[in-house]
Every structure is written in C-alpha cells, then in structure tokens.
C-alpha cells in the first residue's frame, strides 16, 4: 500500500476535507470499504454523499457497496501543468459505473493506460493519502 501511495503521489494531491456529511464515506475507505448512501424512502443509491436523497428528498442511510463496476467513460490525460499530475502523465481519469447504480470519478491504476476501454471491469483499490484513503480502481476480471 505504501509503495502504491508513493507511486501515485497521493499526499501531493489536493486532498479532500471530510465534513459531517462525508465523514462516513472517508471513514469507510480507511477500513477498505466503499460506503454509499441509499434512500430509506425510494431505495435509490447515490454518490457523492448528500444530506438527503437527491432523487426524492428522503432520508438516507449508509451501506457497504461491492466496490465493483465498469468504466463508463474515461480519458488518458497526457498533459497537465499542475503537480503532481504533471509527473504522473499519462494517467487514466475515469468515470466508473458502480454495480449499485451511482457513478464515481477516479483514476484507473495498476494497468497500461492504453489498455483501458469503456466497459472495462474494475474493482475498488483504496490507497493511503496521509491520514486519508482515496478510492482508486484497478482492472478486474469478473467471475
């Protein structure tokens, strides 16, 4: 994990400031879980964390998602003037469609950037960033 954190320059990235709404999400990653919100009224899962359900306005509860999904769309970033990303090009900036419905922005890591396609199956790979943990994704073969 530490080697991967160094390779991805995680501590040099602009990192999240958890708040009362999002703390559960970040706390989950710290123990390797992808925690999402689900509406207690309409049952819709949502990401990112919000005070209420953005579909119906109902109350939300937390659940642990599978961490599995597929690439909905992506780009291979080949130029970025801002560090540490300038040192990381080419890297994959992707939108992952989670099995539970919501989508997340992430980097698809531990693969040749040229091998990523729309539809590539991916699996959550939490990587430390100082005292936080960021949700990256890695290509996975689906059983």
């Amino acid at each position: 994990m530490n080697d991967l954190a160094a390779e991805l320059h995680t501590t040099e990235r602009m990192l999240p400031q958890p708040d009362t709404v999002s703390a559960e999400f970040w706390d989950g990653l710290a123990v390797g879980e992808l925690r999402l919100q689900r509406c207690t009224d309409c049952d819709t899962a949502q990401f990112y964390p919000r005070p209420t359900c953005s579909t119906c306005g109902g109350a939300v509860e937390w659940f642990v998602a599978t961490g599995r999904g597929e690439v909905h769309t992506f780009t291979v970033v080949r130029a970025n003037g801002v560090e540490p990303f300038a040192s990381l090009v080419p890297y994959v900036f992707a939108v992952v469609q989670l099995e539970e419905g919501p989508r997340m922005l992430t980097n698809v890591i531990q693969c040749d950037p040229e091998s990523v396609r729309i539809g590539t199956h991916v699996q959550l790979t939490p990587v430390a960033a100082g005292e936080l943990v960021l949700p990256f994704f890695t290509p996975a073969s689906r059983e």
Partner: peptide
C-alpha cells in the same frame, strides 16, 4: 489550498481539469 471540500472533494484528487 491544501484541502478541497464539498462535491469537488470527490473529483479534484484524481487530477481532472
């Protein structure tokens, strides 16, 4: 800024622009 809050906290760390 060293930290990003709100909805962008879930996007900025991944090097989007």
């Amino acid at each position: 800024p060293s930290r990003v809050g709100g909805p962008m906290a879930f996007e900025v760390p991944f090097g989007g622009n």
